[in-house]
């Protein structure tokens, strides 16, 4: 009987391979640490500088005139919520629907063009979007308004939401669509009740992240929503927003305002953090 002649040949440069391996792994670990360090630092620093100025007044009071201490950012917090609300009303439906169009009705010229334009739109600087909103809403209305600010945020959200919707829908296997169609279910019902439902957690994630992103945008609001030191909930008037208020306070020469800016930054980060946690909760594995 023939003997088993399985023999392992020893690589000539085994040591070199081991060294290369550990060097590359170390580089990856270092890169990972570099990624988390800035966030930890930001979190730590804003908490340290902001939490001391955080009190019930901050959430309930209006900004005080220069010279008086105290006051809060109630108007800016409300303003931000309103602006994001308007932005979401524009950005979410348009984004989700065009994502459906690109994914489910691909293969024709229009859908390819929409996809291409969406990619470009996501690369347009947010300040340019602000100028755009200024041009088509602020100028004709003859005044700054929350409407223009919300519109700018909405435009900013569209490409993110579109992209995420498209990608999530593409992950749904074709066999699932066919399973539904084969039951005599119409195409729009299949898209709505099967495809969109199955992809919903991913799409919701995208929407929440786009919203969190928009919540922190300052540039597009500079000459649209403009900011306001007073209580304002009328959407065709200039409105305060957290990032704007932080910006205005941070560049002011007053010590008290600086502290308030830190508190504002802390609230903003806390909001984004909460949204991210919410995302984790929504996308947790159910099945």
């Amino acid at each position: 009987m023939k003997q088993n002649t399985l023999k392992l040949s020893k690589p000539v440069n085994l040591t070199r391979r081991k060294v290369t391996n550990s060097v590359m792994i170390s580089l990856c670990v270092i890169a990972g640490v570099i990624t988390i360090l800035p966030l930890l630092y930001i979190f730590f620093y804003t908490t340290k500088s902001g939490i001391s100025s955080l009190n019930p007044d901050f959430f309930t009071q209006l900004p005080k005139p220069v010279g008086e201490t105290g006051g809060g950012m109630a108007n800016a917090i409300t303003g931000s919520l309103i602006l994001i609300g308007i932005g979401g009303l524009i950005g979410i439906p348009v984004g989700v629907l065009s994502g459906i169009y690109i994914s489910e009705y691909s293969g024709n010229i229009t859908s390819t063009v929409v996809k291409f334009i969406t990619d470009i739109l996501s690369g347009v600087p947010s300040i340019v979007i602000g100028i755009f909103a200024y041009g088509i809403i602020v100028l004709p209305m003859q005044r700054f308004s929350a409407l223009a600010g919300g519109f700018a945020l909405g435009i900013l959200m569209i490409p993110t939401v579109t992209k995420v919707t498209e990608e999530m829908l593409r992950l749904i296997p074709q066999s699932l669509r066919e399973a539904s169609l084969a039951l005599g279910v119409s195409r729009w019902k299949t898209t709505l009740r099967i495809v969109l439902t199955t992809a919903s957690s991913g799409i919701v994630t995208g929407i929440l992240l786009a919203t969190a992103r928009a919540a922190g945008e300052t540039a597009p609001l500079l000459f649209t929503s403009f900011g306001n030191s007073f209580w304002q909930t009328n959407i065709d008037e200039p409105m305060a927003a957290l990032p704007l208020q932080i910006f205005a306070y941070a560049i002011s020469p007053y010590e008290d305002w600086h502290r308030q800016a830190w508190a504002g930054a802390f609230v903003l980060i806390f909001l984004v953090f909460t949204v991210n946690l919410l995302v984790r909760y929504v996308t947790r594995k159910k099945y």
């Binding site: 699932l176 084969a182 039951l183 005599g184 279910v185 099967i194 439902t197 099945y287």
Partner: peptide, 29 residues
């Protein structure tokens, strides 16, 4: 397609639905 049903190579129940919901999915939809 209501008259001509189809069963596929790979089992493809609707992943967001329960057993019961799958069984009546065609009617419900």
């Amino acid at each position: 397609r209501k008259k001509v049903g189809m069963v596929f190579q790979k089992p493809n129940p609707f992943p967001t639905m329960t057993i019961y919901e799958n069984a009546v999915s065609g009617l419900k939809l």
